[in-house]
Design a protein around this nucleic acid. Sequence first.
DNA 1: CTTAAACTACCGACCGTTCGGTAGAGTTGA
DNA 2: TCAACTCTACCGAACGGTCGGTAGTTTAAG
Lengths: 195, 195
Amino acid sequence: MTRDEILDAAAQIFRQKGYHATSMQDIANAVKLQKASLYYHVNSKQEILLMILDRALDILIARMQEVMAMPLSPEEKLRRAMIAYFQIMLEQRDLASVLLLEYRSLEPEFRQRHIPRRDHYEHLWRELLNEGKNQRIFHVSDIALAARFLLGVMNWTITWYREDGRLSPEELAKECANLFVLGLKVRENGDQRKN
Amino acid sequence: MTRDEILDAAAQIFRQKGYHATSMQDIANAVKLQKASLYYHVNSKQEILLMILDRALDILIARMQEVMAMPLSPEEKLRRAMIAYFQIMLEQRDLASVLLLEYRSLEPEFRQRHIPRRDHYEHLWRELLNEGKNQRIFHVSDIALAARFLLGVMNWTITWYREDGRLSPEELAKECANLFVLGLKVRENGDQRKN
DNA sequence: CTTAAACTACCGACCGTTCGGTAGAGTTGA
DNA sequence: TCAACTCTACCGAACGGTCGGTAGTTTAAG
């Protein structure tokens, strides 16, 4: 039994039941250990949560940095970043869900340790929007706000997206990107989209 | 002591700590009653949660129906609906937070009772988008998906919006609506926005 | 012989809920 | 008018159960 196996199992149950509704007994059952044995591998339930959150953000940050380093236009980078985000959301469903929905369950001292990673990730998205603004490709009046709206749409999808649904992460990202990049309103001079 | 006072207090604590991290003792303390006395007014903790969720959605539905009944263009209706939404989010902060963040804590039987209201509300937004599409004002390839994205951005703001922040609900709604209606990309033929 | 990794057994605290009881206000009948 | 009764709103105590966590012991591999 490794620490990572415990984290994976915990993430799965946290996602299903939520942090507070999950007991250490639940986690122990999932990895076929006695509850007490968990404490050989981890220090506390809060630590488990923190490690899950950190791990999830590390994955998101790594993928985002890859995209940012590509020699692409800001618009294309945005589309790729969104695809990457939705892919991670599907492939690392448990981690992503816990990151987005159980952040509130982190007690203050643990939250303090987690915040820098959060800020780093949000900063990457602001950077992306800023590139687009500087190159006169994006119209953004408030970068920080736009980044939050952008992350908001994507974050909320975790609450309703089903992996057995009809939409793949790519299709989801495409629809979302179209909406954000082109807007709802029809563009008079030849709308390049088709239904 | 009335049932409503208990619901208000519960909503406030649920928002701060989350449903599962809130004990009946916490709620009792807030309304200066003994824990046992709560059970004279309500049947269970789950019932408290359900009543809060229902009440929150009733407010949202009522305001949305008002906006839908106005003789306005779809674009203007969308903007008004967004303003209304953010206003409720600020004025009924506790109710709205619990509605968005604690829905998951409803046990299946209680959830069943709550779902119709949810569907009704989401349907109103789809109706709004559909009006715009039929009048060739909005370009929407997938109404249901667009409605979810739309609700997603707004719902997520509850996680970061502070009432002491620099943005009023109206300003927030304006920025959000601009982003959604006009999109990020600059429009060649005279962008009507200004920074 | 050591040590990592698991176990059994247990702790005090707290959980949501129920119970029996009661103070006091309101209602009723003589 | 006043005793008898009922109802509302609340209380203290306790219930069975679960919680996160700890102490001490056994097992298995090197």
